[in-house]
Design a protein around this nucleic acid. Structure first.
Lengths: 141, 141
DNA sequence: GGCTAGTAGTTAGCATAGCTAACAAATAGT
DNA sequence: ACTATTTGTTAGCTATGCTAACTACTAGCC
């Protein structure tokens, strides 16, 4: 290991703590959504990433298929998503968000983003640029 | 709302997505810890923030006291934390991590940080500086 | 056609994690 | 001493995670 690894690890440590802190801050807003975190997260994938099969959702959400199957059950019961059969391969079931699900998700994300933006009050324009640049780097990791 | 809010909201949106993405990446490592996310998170607070009462833990973890009481039960059963009575006020119970709990937590965090640092391979020194500066800003929000 | 793999999803049964309501125990304030 | 408040737990519900086992369908092969 070269000594050049040190700033990498130190930055990773700091960024890890920072990400936890930011998500803890915004998570407060989720209480208003009226659905649990697993359902909220799965719905988010569907709304922002489009319709997916149960298996695809399970991989993205890092849970096993039976768990995702049941999360989808809950979302269907609340009419936030719908199961759509695939005529070409009747084993597969595509899950897509309903208009109601999309509305709930967008409102939730808006609350989270606004809560975070309100914490930016004290920042300078330079600070904002730093955060903007860092966020783009993080999204490309 | 002044038009100066736009970059704030846009940056908040981007940073929100970026934080989710980063934590999703490192969460893969937690499978090896052998304990659930709620117990892992509570243990983390105790290891990095010192001993706390059940109520304090509940506030920090954004759950209700009965939930935290049971999370602590699980950690006690696994000998990762211990309940310590307070002779001055016998209603309160301070929870502190055991040596075993501390070891498990530090190993887990190390895996997460290393997993994140390994994604930094392709970054320039300037990129690293940006991430470092951004992380410090995030921790001070 | 018909047999055998393999694949997608669900069901069943268990542990953990979230909640509210209700309770026990201890302390604080008259 | 009596009442109110505070801290934590217990009880009972729902939701979320797992593995094992099952159904239904598709694909490959002869």
């Amino acid at each position: 290991m070269s000594s050049g690894n040190l700033p990498r690890v130190e930055t990773a440590d700091l960024l890890h703590s920072a990400a936890i802190r930011v998500l803890r801050m915004v998570r407060v807003e989720d209480a208003q959504a009226g659905i649990g975190p697993a359902q909220l997260s799965a719905l988010s994938v569907l709304v922002f990433g489009g319709a997916k099969t149960v298996s695809e959702l399970a991989v993205l959400e890092q849970v096993r298929p039976p768990t995702m199957s049941r999360i989808v059950d809950g979302l269907v019961r609340k009419k936030l998503v719908q199961r759509v059969e695939n005529p070409e391969d009747r084993r597969m079931v595509r899950i897509s968000a309903t208009a109601r699900g999309e509305k709930l998700m967008l409102a939730g994300k808006d609350r989270r983003v606004k809560a975070l933006a309100s914490r930016f009050e004290a920042l300078t324009a330079t600070d904002l640029k730093t955060l903007h640049a860092a966020a783009q780097l993080m999204l490309r990791l």
